[in-house]
């Protein structure tokens, strides 16, 4: 069954949703959308770094994404003007990454795979990594869930309960870097943030508890993944962007239904 590239692609999309659903919910609640962008864009720089040092691509993206996420989290804790800082960091990381990658001619031709993903070419080991990474993120979030939620609602309430909000922020930062490393192959650096935010925002329309929203975001993410693959096959469109197109359509539908 895993021999079929479509089955592998669908399984990869579903696996990724397990992580992006709950993590994306936190990204929405904490207004970290731009933060997700900065981390994802840094992954392109990670690709270049991995090529230069002959390390696995996944390790390179994970390292650079983690470094970027920790930098941004540290700056925000020190009270920098986040909107501007993130804008500068996100786009420079992408630009530096693109320039750095251009030094490797073999990659140059394949650049769009890193920007928009290449889910149809997911190999068995890559599929294994997607599931491993996603399950790790899911387990991390489940383990810290109560503390993360308390710190998200109010840092003061968290402090008073003996929870360190900085530590919880770090948990999210690590989870985000992991998701970026995992999702690069599937939706690409430019659309990772969309995969985080759109299913969670769609789930918000009908959820009454945080858990319901995270769960629904997983389901919507998985449905978008499979639907996007279908769209890609049917219209011969790029798979990564097609997934986001389906997700955005579901979002529009949910918003309309809610209002209607």
């Amino acid at each position: 069954m895993l021999d079929d590239f479509l089955v592998r692609a669908a399984l990869a999309a579903v696996g990724l949703s397990l992580a992006t659903g709950p993590l994306g919910s936190f990204v929405v609640w904490r207004r970290m959308a731009y933060f997700g962008d900065a981390t994802a864009h840094a992954a392109v720089l990670g690709v270049a770094l991995a090529l230069a040092t002959d390390l696995p691509i996944g390790l390179g993206t994970l390292t650079v994404a983690l470094a970027m996420a920790i930098t941004v989290a540290g700056l925000s804790a020190r009270g920098w003007a986040m909107d501007t800082t993130l804008g500068v960091l996100a786009h420079s990381a992408l630009a530096f990454g693109l320039v750095a990658v251009s030094f490797f001619p073999t990659v140059r031709t394949d650049l769009s795979a890193y920007l928009f993903g290449d889910i149809l070419a997911v190999s068995r080991p890559e599929l294994g990594l997607v599931w491993l990474g996603s399950l790790a993120v899911l387990a991390l979030l489940a383990w810290r869930w109560q503390s993360l939620l308390t710190a998200t609602l109010s840092e003061d309430l968290a402090h008073a309960a003996g929870i360190n909000p900085d530590r919880e922020r770090l948990v999210l930062v690590v989870a985000l870097a992991l998701v970026v490393a995992v999702a690069l192959k599937i939706v690409g650096a430019l659309l990772i943030a969309a995969m985080l935010i759109i299913p969670a925002a769609t789930a918000r329309s009908f959820a009454r508890t945080p858990e319901a929203m995270a769960g629904a975001a997983i389901a919507i993410g998985a449905a978008s993944g499979i639907g996007g693959l279908g769209l890609s096959l049917w219209q011969d469109t790029p798979a990564g962007p097609s997934i986001i197109v389906v997700a955005a359509t579901l979002f529009a539908l949910a918003s309309t239904l809610r209002r209607g």
Binding site: R31, T152, R204, A207, T209, P210, M213
Partner: peptide, 8 residues
């Protein structure tokens, strides 16, 4: 409480 966070 941020309106994006549903909680009873």
């Amino acid at each position: 409480i941020d309106r994006t966070l549903p909680i009873t």
